[in-house]
Computed example of a mutant assay.
Amino acid sequence: MHLGGTPYRMPKYKISRIIKELFPVDYERRERKERYTEITGDKLKEKEVKEAVKRLKGNKAPGMDGISPKALKYLAGKDMAGMTRMFQHYWSSREFPRNWKEARVVLLPKEGKKSDDPSA
């Protein structure tokens, strides 16, 4: 993070507090499963997967899994049914690959606010 052009390393305890406030964790797996089923039903549809892939911006960097949006678009064009089956498997089992649940968070400070304030 840079504040006024000067590199700044925030202490880990401050980063941890900010991340916990910005991204609260739901520890009850059963509740999550019920909420997902409420939202979409038991099975993802090919149309839903196709729409999600269509919304991806192809020029973005790969995520933590190393797969770029451009690659996902290409694969969807070659085998949408196969891609849908893969996502249906993960969706119905509620077990997603670990690297799909990881992210690299970059905090960008707002001028006039304290750097350790989550709203900044």
Results as ranks from 00 to 15, higher is better:
K33C: 03
K60S: 03
T6N: 06
L44D: 01
K73S: 08
D42T: 09
W91T: 00
Y8P: 10
L75E: 12
D117R: 04
R29P: 01
Y90L: 14
R35D: 15
R30F: 05
A103M: 04
G63P: 00
V49W: 01
S16Y: 07
I18V: 14
G112M: 03
K50S: 05
E46P: 08
G63F: 06
A52K: 13
W91L: 02
Y8M: 13
K78F: 08
P118C: 13
Y8V: 08
A76G: 10
K73H: 08
E28N: 15
K54G: 05
A120L: 01
P24Q: 13
H89D: 02
M83G: 03
K45V: 07
M10S: 11
K60L: 10
I39P: 02
K12D: 11
G82H: 12
L107P: 02
D65P: 06
L3M: 15
W91E: 00
V25S: 10
W100I: 00
P118S: 12
G41S: 09
Y90C: 08
P118Q: 14
G41K: 10
E95N: 14
G66M: 13
E28K: 12
D116Q: 14
G66I: 05
S115C: 12
R9A: 13
E21M: 11
A71D: 09
K60W: 02
P109Y: 03
S93L: 11
D42C: 06
K57V: 02
V105A: 11
V53P: 09
V53Q: 05
E28W: 15
S115P: 12
L56D: 00
R85E: 15
Y90R: 11
K114V: 00
S68T: 02
G5W: 05
E51R: 12
L108K: 06
P62G: 07
D65Y: 10
D65L: 14
V49G: 02
S119T: 11
A76M: 08
T6C: 04
M1T: 04
G112I: 00
D26V: 07
R104A: 14
K45D: 02
K60T: 00
L108V: 07
E46K: 15
